[in-house]
């Protein structure tokens, strides 16, 4: 079966209940109550968003959310915002090791938070563009958008664990 790609103005996407979306293609086909998921949640963010029905079957793929009509774009971004929680770490108040756990106290774009990282080697990933991806002991995700743009103290506090 050929995959349906949504781009630019070839579809109107509106919000349905429970963080779901309704999609109406320019040729009249409709998909109701679909869920938006990133195909590349780490590297792609707003590109290649798959739309799944309640059985998890893919109905269509949005090539680039940024290219959609403004209302459709907003609906999709809201849905993604609701689904994905990857707080961006803006400042590191404390990073210390205690009994094999890395204990972090940070300020994020979602507020202040404390969490623990169990396996530093597996749970902290440094990408070449300076992004740092962190997974805590409960499987929650965090991101430092650009490690080299953190303030000096934060960099120093965390640097020894990278």
């Amino acid at each position: 079966m050929e995959r349906i790609y949504i781009q630019d103005d070839n579809a109107r996407i509106t919000k349905a209940g429970d963080n779901l979306l309704n999609v109406e293609l320019y040729d009249g086909r409709k998909f109701e109550n679909v869920e938006a998921r990133r195909l590349f949640p780490i590297t792609g963010l707003d590109k290649y968003i798959t739309l799944l029905d309640d059985e998890g079957v893919e109905m269509a793929v949005i090539r680039d959310v940024q290219g959609l009509m403004p209302e459709s774009k907003k609906s999709v971004l809201d849905a993604l915002e609701e689904y994905y929680l990857i707080p961006k770490i803006l400042e590191i108040y404390e990073a210390k090791e205690e009994y094999g756990l890395l204990k972090m106290n940070v300020r994020t774009d979602r507020g202040k938070y404390k969490f623990d990282v169990k396996n530093r080697n597996m749970d902290i990933k440094i990408l070449y563009d300076g992004r740092v991806l962190i997974k805590d002991t409960s499987d929650n995700r965090y991101e430092i958008p650009d490690f080299y743009k953190l303030d000096g103290k934060s960099m120093k506090r965390f640097n020894s664990f990278l």
């Binding site: 209940g17 429970d18 949640p41 609701e82 689904y83 994905y84 929680l85 990857i86 707080p87 499987d139 929650n140 995700r141």
Partner: peptide, 17 residues
């Protein structure tokens, strides 16, 4: 409802979700 890094306790009642 488990999502990415967060989850919601969603209740369905006579008045909806």
């Amino acid at each position: 409802k488990r999502m990415y890094g967060n989850a919601i306790l969603r209740l369905k009642t006579g008045q909806g979700s």
